[in-house]
Nucleic acid binder design. Structure first.
Lengths: 109, 109
DNA sequence: TGACATGTTCTATTTTGTAGAACAAATTGG
DNA sequence: CCAATTTGTTCTACAAAATAGAACATGTCA
């Protein structure tokens, strides 16, 4: 009943954001990246729930960073994508790409 | 609480399959296309449920075709993607692409 | 130390994804 | 013409993913 190796759409976006932010991926930063690049406005709750789920599936790992010297700059939980996470991403993106490839009249050439 | 214009991953694949099959898109055909191109094995029930939801959202339309002269060849319910469906697809695929673009070390160049 | 800023967790709900049996309609052989 | 077979769709039920927002925690600074 599971979808096997395939990721949900939001899971894909989160994983991509974490990869993009490379070593500086944490909740709020991911939220901003998603908004800025993908135009997807997600609540902070939605993001953490998904990150937790991805960690359960061992597609990301997290570790506590250090607090910065900014006002309110408490320690961040930094996320990284595991090899399994990359593989899952490849498969999911590959599947969509295979379906989209060569399709015309959609303007996504 | 709605995700606005964004589609779920399976919805995306279904819409792409319908576009691909162009005028010949119906339940079983979509199932085969998904399996062959995307490597995604979905039950026929999963496919129809999703098609029904997409129709509710007016992202696809369906009409009853004619029965063919094959053994058991009863009338097919033929699906087409509406302009709104194409727009939603563009947006969803565009968002993922924007996030994936320029990412290295993932082998999906 | 209390006001404020940054960051994460918790709780609850809606939407999507999933399967498979039941049902419907067509063909064909006897 | 009707039983068996084939193609196709609908129905029912449940699991997983997406979503939000308040509550909570921790840090700075005046």
């Amino acid at each position: 009943m599971s979808r096997g190796e395939f990721l949900g759409d939001f899971e894909q976006l989160i994983l991509l954001a974490v990869l993009r932010l490379d070593r500086e991926a944490y909740g709020l930063g991911i939220q901003q990246e998603l908004s800025a690049r993908a135009g997807r406005e997600a609540s902070i709750g939605a993001i953490y729930t998904t990150l937790d789920r991805l960690e359960q599936k061992q597609l990301v790992r997290s570790e506590l960073g250090e607090s910065t010297a900014e006002r309110g700059g408490r320690a961040k939980r930094i996320f990284t994508v595991t090899p399994a996470g990359k593989a899952a991403l490849r498969q999911s993106i590959g599947a969509t790409r295979a379906m989209a490839d060569g399709l015309k009249g959609l303007g996504l050439a």
